[in-house]
């Protein structure tokens, strides 16, 4: 059986990404799960090993020139995106953002060309990416444009088998009600349904969260549940989607915690992220939903407060890598 081919990029050079990669790759079982292609500056991967106090071997290759998986060990595609002395440690900078974005571009192109199957990336710093010309509210929207994706996209978050998708994401809370419409809810439900099916669940059990407190309390605290969410859920059920709701958002996660639900469709960013990060701050993974191949990353950020100290916890990065491997193995055409 061929192994999944996973491209790994460092993310923001001033954050904990390089250190996490060193910690991940220094564990022998990592390379057993996949053929790994590191994409980025050689000195960034050396920096990570120094920060982590953990070593791994890599061999240089050019993936555009023949089958890069031939050969032993971890492959490295050297890039030059930043000079070693231009890295700003634990600080937002144009140079850091540019490096992160250039390595992302390379990885996206390799995946689009079928040279790698999936991407796992170290944490990005959004402000640095925006300075470097991201031009979108987040990296997901940037990737979608880069790849010409026209369908619905949503960050999916996952922890210990619980998945969430969102009807709205990186927008002000006051704008959220404008996003709560039949089209977006339907697409968010189909997206998580498809990703879970393609990841090996034959009939994912899905629940939709309400927008308002107490799911609107029969219209006393808001009418979106009655006017929009309930009719949309009913329509989806008639379309044979295994979904229910809307459920009050302060109890819907208890269903997932109890193992009764695989995926929860949330109306806004913090509705899902508060619960998931509470349950497993150190293990949560973000999957870029709607992209034509698996792209995963730890749910946490660059952790500038501890970057360079060697204290970064590798569990979420490990989980991100494992989920990418599993998704490639189970990936079925949608």
């Amino acid at each position: 059986m061929t192994k999944p081919r996973i491209g790994i990029i460092p993310g923001d050079p001033g954050g904990i990404g390089p250190e996490l990669i060193a910690k991940l790759l220094s564990q022998p079982e990592t390379a057993e799960k996949a053929d790994i292609l590191l994409i980025g500056d050689a000195h960034l991967f050396a920096l990570g090993q120094e920060q982590a106090g953990a070593d791994f071997e890599m061999r240089t290759c050019n993936p555009l020139d023949g089958d890069w998986t031939e050969g032993d060990g971890i492959a490295h595609y050297p890039r030059e995106t930043i000079a070693p002395d231009a890295i700003t440690h634990a600080e937002v900078s144009l140079a850091n953002g540019t490096s992160a974005l250039e390595n992302l571009n390379t990885a996206l192109q390799l995946a689009q060309d079928g040279i790698i199957d999936a991407i796992t990336f170290g944490p990005f710093n959004k402000a640095a990416l925006i300075e470097a010309g991201l031009g979108h509210e987040d990296e997901l929207h940037y990737m979608a444009e880069f790849l010409g994706v026209e369908g619905y996209i949503s960050e999916l978050n996952t922890l210990d088998g619980i998945w969430t998708s969102r009807v709205s994401s990186h927008i002000a809370l006051s704008e959220v009600p404008d996003y709560v419409n039949e089209e977006r809810i339907t697409k968010a439900v189909h997206l998580i349904d498809n990703v879970l099916k393609r990841s090996g669940l034959s009939r994912p059990r899905l629940s939709v969260a309400a927008l308002n407190p107490h799911a609107g309390d029969n219209g006393n605290f808001g009418t979106e549940e009655i006017d929009v969410i309930q009719p949309t859920v009913d329509k989806l059920r008639k379309g044979q989607v295994n979904v229910d709701g809307p459920w009050p958002s302060d109890t819907v996660f208890l269903k997932a915690k109890a193992g009764d639900v695989d995926g929860i469709i949330t109306m806004y960013h913090d509705q899902g992220q508060i619960a998931l990060k509470l349950m497993g701050f150190d293990r949560g993974v973000t999957v870029q939903g709607g992209i034509p191949f698996p792209v995963t990353t730890p749910a946490h950020g660059t952790a500038f407060d501890i970057s360079g100290t060697g204290k970064a916890d590798v569990k979420a990065m490990q989980a991100a890598f494992s989920i990418a491997c599993n998704m490639v193995s189970n990936w079925q055409a949608s």
Partner: peptide, 15 residues
Amino acid sequence: MYHDQALIPVKTVDF
């Protein structure tokens, strides 16, 4: 700042 921002964590941590 709002109901569910408070109620989600408190109920998730110990219902």
